[in-house]
């Protein structure tokens, strides 16, 4: 009897874990700024809805040393600026465990769009004996002037927005095109998750869960792009939503192991009030 309970528990834990998706977060509290200011960013590899496991960014299969972030940069008015030196290592506290990530600050001074992109080192997922690398984009706007939000940056894996990612009302939609090096990826598999927790910037910690999933398929929502790599998703609740197009990148091997090179974009939704 005891054994049966244990087995059931183990199975429950396992299925709960497999139901939620890995998401590289490039978190900042506000993506639509009234005027230029220095913004706070947190770079955390986690499961934003369930928050049952925070991962160590850059974990490798053959070493205890975490691999450094490959690239972190911003594009404003078509000018690319390297921000890698602004990354400071942090221990980020999830509700279940802590994981190694980064904090940074960025002075979003100039009017217009600031497209922030992080290319983390591939992360070794022991459960799958494979690496995951999520090239992640977030767009911060100053004073409402559109400049770069729709740019195709030609990344190995990228979601190019067709909707401004920082001005979305609750109940409206977000449309994007999944791309790899400037070419659309037809029928790309996309996972969608809601950031179901407030992020405490001072404590580098996740808050309590806001909503409950009625069933496992609601934790990570699965959609697919159409034949042109395009997708649209309706956004039912204010906050941050993440979209991850899986395995769409041009690289599929890392250190002799399978690599899933994913494209992630975060969009921020606001209530009409």
């Amino acid at each position: 009897m005891k054994k049966a309970i244990m087995l059931t528990l183990a199975l429950t834990v396992f299925t709960a874990m497999s139901a939620s998706a890995h998401f590289q977060m490039l978190y900042t509290p506000e993506s639509a700024l009234d005027k230029g200011e220095t913004i706070q960013l947190r770079h955390v590899f986690t499961h934003p809805f369930a928050d049952e496991h925070t991962m160590d960014m850059g974990k490798q299969h053959d070493s205890d040393t975490l691999a450094p972030v490959e690239e972190f940069f911003v594009v404003n008015k078509e000018k690319k600026t390297d921000l890698k030196s602004t990354l400071k290592p942090i221990e980020f506290k999830g509700n279940e465990n802590s994981g190694k990530g980064f904090a940074s600050e960025y002075k979003a001074r100039s009017m217009g769009d600031h497209v922030l992109v992080i290319v983390p080192a591939p992360y070794y997922e022991a459960n799958e004996e494979a690496y995951i690398q999520q090239i992640t984009k977030v767009v911060v706007n100053v004073a409402g002037a559109p400049t770069d939000w729709d740019a195709d940056l030609g990344l190995k894996a990228e979601i190019v927005p067709l909707t401004k990612p920082y001005s979305i009302w609750t109940g409206s939609t977000f449309t994007g095109i999944v791309m790899s090096e400037g070419k659309p990826v037809p029928f790309a598999e996309i996972e969608v998750e809601y950031l179901n927790h407030d992020v405490d910037l001072a404590k580098n910690a996740m808050g309590k869960a806001k909503v409950k999933a009625p069933q496992d398929s609601f934790v990570t929502l699965g959609i697919k792009a159409d034949q042109n790599g395009k997708f649209t998703f309706g956004l039912p609740k204010a906050g941050w939503w993440g979209f991850a197009a899986l395995g769409v990148g041009s690289d599929d091997q890392y250190k002799g192991k399978e690599l899933s090179q994913d494209a992630v974009i975060w969009v921020q939704v606001k209530d009409m009030k």
Binding site: K35, G36, R109, S110, M111, G112, V142, A143, G144, A145, P146
Partner: peptide
């Protein structure tokens, strides 16, 4: 649209633009 910032050298810079 317009956004302005203090250059910290006794001058101010304003940037203008339109929503399109």
């Amino acid at each position: 649209l317009m956004a302005c910032f203090d250059e910290g050298d006794g001058t101010v810079t304003c940037e203008g633009g339109f929503s399109d």
